[in-house]
């Protein structure tokens, strides 16, 4: 049986006790998946998994608190589930996790860039292990998976779900590479170059807050500080400064919590490389606190606890 069949069998056996199971189905065309809320066995037929099922479904979980929910997670998504559990934002007893062993997902941004013209509606998609062929407007293009894999998948250290009541598929190896060229290139820039870079990039931001809404760790719901008058941290002018301030608030609220699922960057309609900031912050957290969010149950993010003295911060001996 294929992993998909295994998964369907597993879901079928648990569906009775759950309000719904969150998975993916085909979206408006064969290239795009969309989240699927499985409530009956009939819904189960529409379930898809694989490199096109890109969404981190854990984003839905805090909003479904109080309901019995099943969720299908890739390795990266499972970190978000663990982090939400560690922060008491969801309840383990109300949750059934169907874990996948993931070999990576695509980046739609990279696909768009690789195609000669924007495909609009895709007529047919053919997936093999290494290639993806896309037929649109009667024209077929074959893309190599290595070229269109999401950035996070190229350095993935957790391909298999870290938390799972049911694990399907055969476990995958973590990647050898741990840093991305684009990250190194950005961090090598001078302060002035970085400033200019963000001035330019943030002028594209339309403050749609898609990055916030897609983020599984943004749990303030209707009370986000970005739209509050009391306290008033942020003006509503759409200027690079205010837009950057919003991102800096977002990143600092994610300190030690961000699981690098990349939903913020994926959701951004104007292609702002938001993960540059998050990866940098996560590296600092890793260096100072030896903490990587969502990799183990019962771990507390370093900024969500009080310690008189931190081992990793030298406060004495000046």
């Amino acid at each position: 049986m294929s992993p998909l069949d295994d998964l369907k069998t597993a879901i079928k056996s648990r569906l009775g006790e759950l309000d719904c199971v969150i998975g993916w189905e085909q979206g408006y065309d064969q290239l795009h998946a969309t989240p699927l809320f499985i409530r009956s066995e009939a819904d189960l037929d529409r379930l898809v998994i694989g490199p096109l099922a890109v969404h981190n479904l854990a984003t839905y979980l805090p909003g479904l608190r109080g309901k019995k929910v099943g969720i299908i997670v890739k390795g990266c998504d499972s970190r978000s589930v663990i982090q939400l559990l560690n922060e008491n934002l969801i309840t383990r007893d109300d949750l059934v996790v169907f874990g996948l062993c993931c070999s990576g997902v695509v980046s739609h941004r990279k696909i768009r860039a690789a195609l000669p013209v924007d495909p609009g509606f895709v007529e047919a998609v053919d997936l093999s292990t290494d290639t993806l062929s896309i037929t649109a407007s009667g024209q077929t293009t074959i893309l190599h998976m290595a070229d269109i894999a999401a950035d996070k998948c190229q350095i993935c250290q957790y391909p298999n779900a870290l938390i799972a009541d049911v694990l399907v598929g055969s476990p995958q190896e973590s990647k050898v590479l741990t840093t991305l060229a684009c990250q190194e290139e950005f961090e090598a820039k001078s302060e002035a170059e970085k400033f200019a870079f963000w001035q330019e990039t943030m002028s594209r931001c339309i403050r749609c807050y898609a990055c916030r809404n897609a983020c599984p760790m943004c749990v303030c719901r209707d009370f986000c500080i970005s739209t509050s008058r009391d306290p008033l941290w942020l003006g509503q002018e759409n200027t690079p400064g205010e837009n950057m301030m919003f991102q800096l608030i977002h990143v600092s609220h994610l300190t030690g919590r961000c699981t690098e699922c990349g939903e913020c960057e994926r959701a951004c309609p104007v292609d702002i490389p938001l993960l540059l900031l998050r990866r940098y912050m996560n590296k600092q957290v890793q260096d100072v606190f030896e903490h990587r969010a969502g990799t183990a149950l019962e771990q507390t993010p370093p900024l969500l606890t009080f310690k008189v003295e931190e081992e990793g911060i030298k406060e004495r001996g000046w």
């Binding site: 922060e87 749990v219 303030c220 719901r221 009370f223 969500l304 606890t305 009080f306």
Partner: peptide
């Protein structure tokens, strides 16, 4: 405004 996440209780 409070979403009851309890982070303040922890810290």
């Amino acid at each position: 405004r409070c979403v009851g996440c309890g982070k303040c209780i922890q810290t």
